[in-house]
């Protein structure tokens, strides 16, 4: 077990290193000269000399690998550079915007779990029933629906017709409901389909047949054997979805004027604010990687078999 965790952590370091390199490469294939962009933004009619001075100051005259080392050195100390637009440290901006996104994503995650577990279990147990068919139809609509459109539909429905939730703006719990549902519905549709298929395939396992042959009550078989054995892949997928939701928050935040990391990233892209883009991308990728690690560790905790099988790798 410890060997597995050690190997997993070593792998994590390799992956994180790769993530930083890739982020760095992404930002350097840009046709924009950040120094020039910065100069144009902050100095009226900059002279080439002024641009060159800024470039030296930003360390952009150094060879690429030196720039990378400087950048990653900064990252390790929590310094992600300075935003070209707000002139604040990128890390401060992110720290300022992140809580709003996390709030809505956590709420959405709560919905996903709440929707997925009962619906997928019932649909699998009562396969081909009316309930299963309705769930099938709704989830196919759910995976085909553009979530920004879903957001607008919810807005129109609840703002104009049923003023139940606070619609626009950012603040209390009530204002969280519509944005979080908008994120959660497509994701839930995906996970319901996936979980249903997992449960169904587990229902044909030998150990389920053997449990039936021992006269174990049906409810106990479903909960104790089928659902329990479907959890490990589900944990992995749920953690991945959590990462997707943070990355995908941009679209929903734009619909609901939500001041989170996603809309921050989009406005940085529109404004070609490279340090902010890099910072946001790096932070989200690191969160995503850590979530994957979390999923693996959770799986070790709940699945005894994993210790032996994966420990030997």
């Amino acid at each position: 077990m410890f060997r597995y965790i050690r190997n997993r952590l070593l792998g994590l370091i390799v992956v994180l290193l790769g993530v930083t390199i890739l982020t760095f490469v992404f930002s350097n294939i840009s046709s924009v000269d950040p120094a020039e962009a910065y100069a144009l933004r902050h100095i009226l009619n900059p002279t080439p000399n002024q641009i060159a001075a800024i470039r030296t100051e930003m360390g952009m005259d150094l060879p690429l690998y030196r720039q990378y080392i400087n950048w990653i050195g900064g990252c390790l100390q929590g310094d992600l550079g300075t935003s070209l637009i707000t002139k604040n440290p990128v890390s401060a901006d992110i720290a300022h915007k992140m809580p709003a996104t996390l709030k809505v994503v956590m709420m959405a995650f709560f919905w996903v779990v709440i929707f997925t577990l009962p619906v997928s279990i019932l649909a699998a147990v009562y396969k081909d029933s009316i309930f299963d068919n309705i769930a099938k139809f709704i989830t196919i609509v759910g995976i085909s629906i553009p979530n920004f459109w879903l957001g607008f539909i919810l807005l129109v429905a609840f703002a104009v017709n049923i003023p139940l939730f606070k619609v626009v703006g950012y603040g209390d719990f009530k204002s969280l409901i519509l944005p979080s549902l908008t994120i959660a519905i497509p994701i839930s549709s995906m996970s319901i389909r996936l979980f249903r298929a997992t449960i169904l395939s587990n229902m044909n396992q030998d150990f389920v047949i053997y449990a039936q042959a021992r006269g174990i009550p049906k409810a106990r078989i479903i909960w104790g054997h089928v659902v329990k054995n479907s959890l490990p892949p589900m944990i992995t997928v749920f953690c991945q979805y959590l990462g997707y939701m943070i990355a995908g928050s941009a679209i929903v935040e734009s619909v609901f004027s939500w001041p989170g990391i996603g809309s921050h990233l989009v406005s940085a892209i529109v404004g070609r604010d490279l340090p902010t883009i890099n910072g946001c991308v790096l932070v989200i990728a690191v969160i995503f990687t850590l979530l994957n690690l979390l999923a693996d560790l959770l799986n070790i905790v709940i699945n005894p078999k994993m210790l032996n099988e994966r420990g030997e790798i």
């Binding site: 396992q205 030998d206 150990f207 047949i209 053997y210 449990a211 042959a213 021992r214 104790g224 054997h225 329990k228 054995n229 709940i302 699945n303 005894p304 078999k305």
Partner: peptide, 13 residues
């Protein structure tokens, strides 16, 4: 009943 494959008849978890 005694099943054919003891390795898969028991719930691994």
């Amino acid at each position: 009943m005694i099943m054919q494959n003891p390795m898969t008849a028991f719930d691994p978890m």
